[in-house]
Amino acid sequence: MDPNYSTIFDLDLEQNTEEKAKNDLEFQNFVMSNDENVGKMTSNNNTNLGNASFTNIENNNSTNNYSFWNIEYYSKYFNVDTKDVIERIICTIFPKESFFNKIDANPDLYGPVWISTTVILTLFVTSCIANSLVTYLKDKKGDAKYNYDFSLLSFASVTVYTYIGFIPLVIWFLCKYFAISLGLIDLYCLYGYGLSLWIPAAVFAILPNSLLHTIFVLIPGVISGYYLYYNIYPYTKRCDNKLASIIIFATIFTSLIILILIFKIVFFKFSV
C-alpha cells in the first residue's frame, strides 16, 4: 500500500472528525448523556486514537498500522539494541537460561539475518584459507597454483539460508498441527541465534587435520542440539499427544545432523 494514500485518507478523516466534534460541541448536551451521543463520542475517540498512533509512527517509527507488505511492518522485529543482541548470542552459546525467557516476547529478525550471513562468509573465508594452506603444505616448492573455488560461497549461502528459512517454518507448521503455541518469528529468532555457535567453530576449519575437524564440527553440533531441545521441549511437553514431541524432535535433529554432515563434507574437508 502506498503510504501517501494512507496519509491522505487519515487527513480526510481527521477533518471529518474535527467537523463532527465541532458539531457535537455545539449541539450536544453532555449532562443528559443519551446513548447515541455516548456512542458518537467513543467512535470519535477511537478515530482520534488512530490518528495519534499514526503520527507516532511518523515520529518514533513504532509500527502498528502498517500492512504486511510494507517494509515498516517489519521494523518491530528490528527493535533491539547492541546490548540485547550480544546478550542473546551469549545465551545461545551457553544455554543455561531459556532463550524465550531471555527475548521476553520481543523476537528480532536482525540476529537471524546477520548471524546466518556471518556464518556463510566465515565458512567461505576459512575454507579458502584452509584450501590454500593445504595446497602449500602438500607442495612446498610452491609450484602448485592454488585456485579458489567461488562455488563454495554460493553453496554455503544456499545451505545456510535454506536451513534457517525452511526448518523453522516446518516446525511451526508441526506446532500448529499439534496446537502448541510457538510463534513463527520466535522460532526464526531461536534458530538464527542458534547458528552463532558456528562462527567460532568455522575458524577451526583452517587447521589442516581431519580429527580436529570432526571434533570442532561435533562440539557446536551437540551444543546446538541441546540448545534447541532445552528451549523447545517445555512447549512440546505440555501437548497431550505424545507423538508431537517425537515428530518435532525427529525433524529438528534430522535437519541438524544433515547440516553438520554438509559442513563436515564441504567446508571442513581440507586436511593434509
Binding site: 533491539v80 539494541d81 547492541t82 546490548k83 543482541v85 536482525y110 546477520w114 550471513t117 556471518t118 562468509l121 567461505f124 573465508v125 579458502c128 590454500s132 579458489y148
Partner: peptide
C-alpha cells in the same frame, strides 16, 4: 546511538567480502 554497531556491522561485512574477493 544505541544501535550504531548494529547498523555498522553489515556495512563492515559488505566491504569485508568484497575485499576478500579482491585479495584471493
Amino acid at each position: 546511538s544505541q544501535k550504531k554497531t548494529l547498523v555498522i556491522y553489515p556495512i563492515f561485512l559488505f566491504y569485508f567480502i568484497i575485499a576478500w574477493m579482491i585479495l584471493i
